[in-house]
Measured scan of single mutants.
Amino acid sequence: GYRKEQERLGIPYDPIQWSTDQVLHWVVWVMKEFSMTDIDLTTLNISGRELCSLNQEDFFQRVPRGEILWSHLELLRKY
């Protein structure tokens, strides 16, 4: 899972600490993992702090059909 990727690349476990690059890395990883092609990366060119401050409605406004990303983010925030 993504935890291995975080360990390998030194990405903080807590998404709130992610840099913009780390947010984009996570988005690309999830897209590959779940064979998603319809995500516009430019809408998530934000820091982890900004990402974690979005509520579900705001998130889906930025990322239509972003349910998998949202669920994955929720999982990461719990651990």
Rank of each mutant, 00 (worst) to 15 (best):
V30H: 08
M31Y: 05
K32F: 04
R65K: 13
D14N: 11
G66V: 02
E7G: 05
Q6D: 03
T20P: 13
V27K: 04
L76C: 09
E7L: 07
H72N: 11
F34I: 08
L41T: 11
E33L: 04
L54M: 14
G10M: 10
I16P: 04
I11K: 00
V63T: 07
S71E: 13
T37F: 13
E57W: 08
R3S: 07
H25G: 07
E67I: 07
N55S: 14
D38T: 10
I11R: 02
S71A: 12
R8Q: 08
P15Y: 01
L51K: 00
C52S: 05
T37Y: 09
K4S: 13
L9F: 15
D58L: 10
D21N: 12
R65I: 07
S19K: 06
R3I: 13
T43A: 14
E50Y: 09
W70T: 00
P64H: 08
I68F: 11
H72Q: 15
G66W: 03
L76W: 03
T43V: 11
N45E: 12
E74G: 11
D14P: 03
L41M: 14
R65T: 10
I68S: 10
Y13G: 09
W26L: 01
E57C: 11
G66Q: 02
C52F: 05
E67S: 11
R49K: 10
I46H: 01
D14Q: 05
M31V: 12
N55T: 13
P64I: 03
K32L: 04
Q61G: 13
H72M: 05
P64L: 01
T37S: 11
K78W: 06
L51T: 02
T43C: 14
L69I: 04
P12L: 00
Q22L: 01
V63G: 06
L73A: 02
M36C: 15
L44T: 03
W29Q: 03
E74F: 05
I68Q: 10
V27W: 02
F60I: 15
H25Q: 05
F60E: 11
E50S: 05
M31W: 05
Q22R: 00
P64Q: 06
Y79G: 15
I39D: 05
Q17H: 15
I16R: 13
E5W: 04
S47L: 02
I68H: 10
Q61R: 14
M36H: 07
H72Y: 04
I11T: 02
L51C: 01
W26P: 00
G48L: 00
F34T: 11
S35L: 07
L51R: 02
V27P: 03
W70P: 00
W18A: 01
R8H: 07
W26Y: 04
D58G: 11
M31F: 10
D40L: 01
L76V: 07
F60M: 15
T43G: 14
G1D: 10
K4Y: 10
L51I: 04
C52I: 15
I39Q: 06
H25I: 08
Q22F: 02
W29S: 04
Q22W: 00
L41R: 07
S53G: 11
E74K: 09
R8Y: 05
G10Y: 05
L24F: 09
L75D: 13
P12Y: 03
Q56M: 09
I68K: 14
D40N: 12
K78F: 10
T42A: 14
S71T: 15
L73V: 04
N55R: 13
S47C: 12
T20N: 15
S19F: 01
L51Q: 00
V63F: 15
F60W: 07
I16S: 14
I16L: 13
L44E: 01
L69Q: 01
I11M: 05
K4C: 06
T42M: 11
H72V: 03
I11D: 01
L69P: 00
E50L: 07
T43P: 14
T20C: 09
N55C: 09
H25S: 06
V23Y: 02
K32S: 10
M36V: 13
L73P: 03
D40M: 03
V23C: 04
L24A: 10
I68C: 11
P15N: 03
Y13T: 08
F59E: 00
E67V: 09
Y13F: 14
H25F: 07
K32N: 13
E7H: 05
P64W: 03
D14T: 01
K32E: 13
G10E: 10
W29D: 03
S47A: 08
P12A: 05
T37G: 14
K78D: 15
Y79W: 10
T20H: 12
L44H: 02
E5C: 05
M31N: 07
T43S: 14
K4A: 11
M31R: 08
V28M: 14
L41S: 09
G1H: 15
Y79L: 12
P64K: 08
G66C: 05
S53R: 11
L9S: 07
S53E: 15
I46M: 15
R8G: 05
E7I: 08
Y79S: 15
E5A: 03
D40S: 09
T42L: 08
G10C: 10
Q61V: 14
K78V: 10
N45A: 14
P15S: 02
F34V: 09
G48C: 01
I11V: 05
K4H: 14
E67F: 06
D58Q: 13
Q17E: 15
Q22V: 00
H25E: 04
D14S: 07
L76E: 04
N55P: 12
L9M: 14
R3G: 07
E67G: 13
N55I: 06
I68M: 10
W18Q: 00
I46F: 06
H72G: 04
Q6M: 13
R62I: 12
V23P: 01
P15K: 02
E33C: 06
G66H: 03
L51D: 02
H72S: 08
R49C: 09
V63P: 03
H25N: 12
E74H: 15
R65G: 14
M31E: 05
R3Q: 12
V63R: 00
Q17A: 11
V30I: 10
T42E: 12
R65C: 14
L41V: 13
F60T: 12
V30T: 14
D21A: 12
F59H: 01
V28L: 15
N55A: 11
D14Y: 03
L75R: 13
Q61N: 10
P15C: 02
K4T: 11
E57G: 12
R3Y: 07
E33G: 07
D14R: 00
L54E: 04
P12W: 00
V30S: 11
W18I: 01
E7T: 10
D14H: 08
L9Q: 15
L73H: 02
D21G: 14
G10D: 07
K4V: 12
E33W: 03
T42N: 10
